[in-house]
């Protein structure tokens, strides 16, 4: 980096710049409802330290979060609340379904358990395991970053600009 100090300029595409900014600071909303929440805690704490990847600030308020980490079982009683939390998050938003329960209901094929959170909200990355290891969650976060890289955040805006002219 030393070579680049001092004044000057960098050439990039605006889209890439936006993506770069989004990618390097995915603020997670740790929504740990059950056992997987404990593993998520390990991933956030010392040892695995998710902050290395820019997930520095666990944001418990949905309004300031980018990535919803849904770790744990969602029961039918909880379903409307999960939906509401997702709706409260500002765009752009991504969702990680952590654990077998969040992915598919897991071992709990019962009257009170939602069989996978994708019945109510869209999911970007599924992390299987019961519970997944913290490394699994970190990998999912990296996958989200890859996904962000492939997005075209300005495509809609630019074409509307062009058409407007």
């Amino acid at each position: 980096m030393e070579a680049y100090t001092g004044s000057g300029w960098l050439l990039t595409r605006l889209e890439q710049l936006v993506n770069w900014g989004r990618k390097r600071s995915p603020w997670p909303l740790p929504y740990g409802t059950a056992c997987c929440g404990i593993e998520m805690m390990c991933a956030l704490a010392s040892g695995y330290d998710m902050a290395r990847f820019g997930a520095e600030r666990p944001s418990f308020s949905p309004r300031q979060a980018d990535v919803l980490i849904e770790a744990g079982t969602i029961t039918k009683k909880m379903t409307p609340i999960l939906r509401r939390i997702y709706d409260q998050m500002a765009e752009p938003k991504w969702v990680i379904a952590m654990g077998a329960c969040a992915c598919s209901g897991g071992v709990f094929r019962t009257y009170s358990t939602l069989q996978g959170i994708d019945h109510v909200i869209p999911v970007d990355v599924y992390v299987p395991g019961c519970p997944p290891r913290p490394e699994g969650l970190l990998f999912a976060l990296l996958k989200i970053m890859d996904k962000i890289d492939m997005e075209h955040p300005l495509r809609g805006e630019i074409s509307s600009l062009v058409e407007g002219k």
Binding site: K76, K77, T79, P80, I81, R84, R109, T110, Y111, S112
Partner: peptide, 20 residues
């Protein structure tokens, strides 16, 4: 009443609907 024996394990498809 879910723990009654004549209630199926996987339920009868009840959903919770909350209106805000």
């Amino acid at each position: 009443h879910p723990l009654r024996k004549d209630y199926p394990l996987e339920g009868r498809g009840e959903e919770r609907i909350l209106r805000y």
